[in-house]
Design a protein around this nucleic acid. Structure first.
Lengths: 213, 213
DNA sequence: ATCCATTTGTTACTAGCGGTAACAGAAGTA
DNA sequence: TACTTCTGTTACCGCTAGTAACAAATGGAT
């Protein structure tokens, strides 16, 4: 049958694609975000042009690779935010989910966030257009959740988006710093960040002897 | 005189260095962060090896170029935070200072924050070690200010650093998003962010019909 | 069986990158 | 005049992303 045949072929192509993505992931995990197309092709047991046939260019491979993790992370964050608990507990759960993810697979998330890095004179895993699509995506997702769940009055939409991107940025920057310096256990970082969002900056007292921050 | 001579030479070298940096800045502003060493050398009217003699490698040139803007920005942020006004006004002034800066010279700050970008098939302006030293620097600076000015009880230092990096990340991510989408005037973005830091997330009511965020 | 289209794979190349070695003059010093 | 130091060049290396051109296998259709 013609249809069956074509589905087989498509199925085969998709299976191949998955194999290639898994090879790429292995290389990225081993060599860091600066992995070269040659190295990835070699790991997959083939040569470069095949990679380009499947993904177009390096940005395409990056996007395909990023999409999996991004989707997985977004799903678990949504789950954390949807749990039937009070607001503070949910925010802490979301923060903890994100931080646990970057703690468990630092290379993956460094790759997602900072496409070009690593000391070894690399040219970087260039995204093409955006520097960190994951951040923007997370920001938009959180904005949606906020807008859906919280009554923010006039300018509510706008506020929700600002807050979404702002909170995600806060989480990311703090996580990045924490991952490098490891100054405290995760739970304490989560608590500090939640405290900040809970108005810690307003309720804290000025230090004696100064005009206050 | 020997000393005079040596000072002349040093002065000449430093003047040269400034010329090169200005050429580099022109190219970065024109071509984006992916500017090549060749292009910069050409703009300065010389050839590559001279650049390398002055700055070691591309990271060195990046750092030298970044240091100027970073210092300038840090100074104005410190000034905003040191003004004799109440805490909220100072936070808003700092946010506004940062956002005004990235609004006035977007290319410069995109270059500082996202060393590798631009669609035109570039290899990126690789920093070498850090992806965005400016962010980390700002985070540490803010942490210092917070620790100096606010009484945070036990774990105060740790809290201050988390908050410093978190707030800077929030500012950066929101600014990045705002710069691309321009969804509202700057002052409103500033107000939204300050509201968030002032516990907007806690005081806002749940939306009717849902379990709340 | 044969012809044909499609897919999978290769080798060999381009253009450009960051970075360097080797060499040529100019300038001041002894 | 001889020596050192600095500025500048050309010509290269090894690497990268990306592509063109060609070979072979696969699986219908006639």
């Amino acid at each position: 049958m013609e249809t069956t045949h074509r589905e087989d072929r498509l199925g085969a192509a998709e299976r191949r694609r998955r194999e290639l993505l898994e090879a790429a992931e292995r290389v990225v995990l081993r060599d860091g975000p600066g992995a070269s197309m040659n190295a990835i092709a070699a790991e997959a047991g083939i040569t470069k042009p095949i990679l380009y046939r499947h993904f177009g260019d390096k940005g395409g491979l990056y996007r395909a690779l990023a999409a999996r993790h991004t989707d997985a992370l977004v799903d678990s964050l949504r789950a954390a935010l949807d749990a039937p608990r009070d607001r503070r507990e949910r925010v802490e759960a979301a923060l903890d989910t994100y931080l646990a993810a970057i703690e468990a697979r630092p290379q993956v998330y460094r790759f997602l966030m900072h496409p070009a890095e690593e000391p070894g004179g690399d040219r970087g895993f260039d995204v093409g257009q955006h520097s960190a699509p994951l951040l923007r995506r997370l920001g938009e997702e959180l904005a949606t959740v906020i807008a859906e769940r919280i009554e923010l009055g006039p300018e509510g939409e706008e506020r929700a988006r600002v807050w979404g991107h702002g909170i995600v940025g806060m989480m990311h920057a703090a996580g990045d710093w924490w991952l490098r310096e490891r100054p405290c256990p995760r739970e304490r970082l989560v608590r500090h960040l939640a405290d900040l969002l809970w108005g810690g900056l307003v309720t804290a007292d000025d230090r004696a002897g100064g005009p206050g921050f």
